[in-house]
């Protein structure tokens, strides 16, 4: 009888450990998603500053560079991807614009913005890779035995990769 109780206790401890490992993995996914939010917000701030500085140079060509979606808390992965794509487009337009205006391209401020953008994109890449790595670990737990059983009891669903979401998004045009 004692052995059965010990065995049941061991099984229970094991189940709790597996449950906690799934909860921890899910937590890491959420935590790393916030890293993407932060990197995108920083990129947004730099791009909007860059946009403001460009306006002075290209007054006669366009009135306003269209704003991209502002990063808010609790945005879905799809929304983040859309915002990221808008930022990519805005960046390309700004750089293309700078090519046509040598004064703008040569200005220290514009160079600083470009350096900041590069660093910001490195951070965004890191955040994306970190997020995807955590998603891989989490999804593995959901698929592999025996954690898959606990995960199905917990009604956990597979997490989405950041890149996968990017491929499905619809484009939002950014007009200069």
């Amino acid at each position: 009888m004692q052995y059965i109780i010990i065995l049941i206790a061991l099984v229970l401890v094991y189940l709790v450990m597996m449950h906690n490992s799934i909860v921890y993995a899910a937590m890491k996914v959420e935590e790393s998603k916030s890293g993407i939010d932060v990197a995108l917000s920083k990129r947004y701030a730099i791009l909007t500053n860059m946009q403001e500085s460009v306006k002075g140079y290209v007054k006669h060509e366009s009135e306003v560079l269209q704003q991209v979606t502002k990063i808010r808390k609790a945005m879905s992965l799809q929304q983040l991807s859309n915002a990221n794509e808008q930022m990519n487009q805005l960046k390309s337009r700004l750089i293309a614009l700078a090519e046509s205006y040598p004064d703008l391209k040569a200005s220290d401020l514009f160079r600083q913005f470009q350096d900041s953008i590069v660093d910001c994109e490195d951070h965004l890449q890191a955040a994306r890779r970190f997020y995807n790595s955590n998603v891989t670990l989490y999804n593995k737990k959901l698929l592999m035995f025996p954690t898959s059983i606990i995960a199905s009891w917990m009604k956990k669903e597979k997490a989405e990769f950041f890149e996968a979401a990017m491929n499905e998004k619809g484009y939002v045009s950014v007009k200069i």
């Binding site: 890491k28 790393s32 890293g35 490195d122 951070h123 890449q125 890191a126 955040a127 890779r129 970190f130 995807n132 790595s133 955590n134 891989t136 670990l137």
Partner: peptide, 27 residues
């Protein structure tokens, strides 16, 4: 942390105080 490269993961172990920073450094 584990990186995307299985080959790298098999050869090395990566320990960090900041996961995101580890990915920032380990391009």
């Amino acid at each position: 942390v584990s990186v995307e490269s299985e080959e790298f993961n098999q050869k090395f172990s990566i320990y960090t105080s900041n996961g995101e920073e580890a990915f920032y450094l380990l391009t």
